[in-house]
């Protein structure tokens, strides 16, 4: 196995107006690694995912995915120039995202939500896409809900559809942006179960922004504590949760676990 990182942030800067969200962030993820990102709100955790999903651009530095720059491409003279929409389109194929608010398409049935992009973007036939969609619904435990519309499902069920929809595009990297934050407490478990099941898949690289500390501890190979646009501390879940070396990490964990 090569240890070449599948995701690499190299001194990445991101600003929203006067506010600097990422301050020369360095961050790498290896292929197949499951990484949880924790930290206070406003620390730039979600921004990292949104930059990877190409929903936000960057103001400095280089982001690489699969060894290739994401927000840049080689110009005619070999120098890096800002990425074209065509380059982003190609790069996005490696990534999938699960949103905090699910972002399902309300006018499509559950199955259609899952099959539309494979048909339109990957060029699968309706039949192939449906078969694959049904398998995925089976995986997330919603095989009997295929014909319903999103608003007819509970939040937990909707988020499981969101996961199936992202998987249907066969990404090698799956991004979870606080996938359980919008859910009623009793519905969190069913979503975490599905994510936990995916984490057992060897090849899938997972990046999880979450406030579910116990879950992060169970599924992650590595946990990163973000603070003020940088990684303040990172390590195995064991190290970070039981014996953090930074005072700031300790404070945060104390506050959130109380």
């Amino acid at each position: 196995m090569n240890d070449e990182p599948i995701i690499k942030f190299d001194k990445v800067i991101k600003r929203f107006g006067d506010l600097t969200v990422l301050r020369e962030l360095d961050f790498t993820v290896k292929k197949g690694e499951k990484v949880s990102i924790i930290g206070p709100s406003g620390s730039g955790k979600s921004t990292v995912l949104r930059i990877l999903m190409t929903l936000e651009g960057i103001d400095g530095g280089i982001v690489s995915v699969g060894g290739e720059p994401l927000w840049h491409e080689k110009g005619a003279d070999g120098a890096l120039v800002p990425a074209s929409e065509a380059h982003l389109h190609k790069m996005r194929a490696q990534l999938g995202m699960v949103f905090q608010q699910f972002n399902l398409f309300p006018h499509m049935t559950v199955l259609r939500n899952i099959t539309e992009a494979p048909v339109k973007v990957l060029g699968l036939s309706r039949k192939e896409a449906r078969e694959r969609g049904e398998e995925l619904l089976e995986l997330v435990g919603l095989a009997d809900q295929a014909g319903k519309y999103p608003h007819q499902l509970s939040g937990g069920q909707q988020q499981r559809v969101g996961i199936a929809r992202a998987l249907a595009m066969r990404p090698s990297i799956l991004l979870f942006d606080e996938p359980t934050s919008a859910l009623d407490p009793e519905l969190v478990g069913e979503v975490l179960n599905v994510i936990g099941k995916l984490a057992e898949e060897h090849d899938l690289t997972m990046l999880l922004v979450t406030h579910e500390m116990r879950f992060a501890r169970e599924v992650s190979d590595r946990v990163c504590f973000f603070d003020q646009g940088r990684i303040r501390e990172e390590g195995s879940p064991e190290e970070l949760f039981t014996d953090p070396s930074e005072e700031r990490t300790r404070e945060f964990l104390q506050a959130i676990l109380d």
């Binding site: 999903m53 190409t54 929903l55 389109h89 996005r92 194929a93 990534l95 999938g96 995202m97 949103f99 608010q101 972002n103 399902l104 398409f105 539309e116 992009a117 339109k120 973007v121 929809r165 992202a166 595009m169």
Partner: peptide, 16 residues
Amino acid sequence: KDQHEAGRALNFTPRQ
């Protein structure tokens, strides 16, 4: 705008 973001994440072109 969530809907546009979902579309982009699934790699739909703006026209799609």
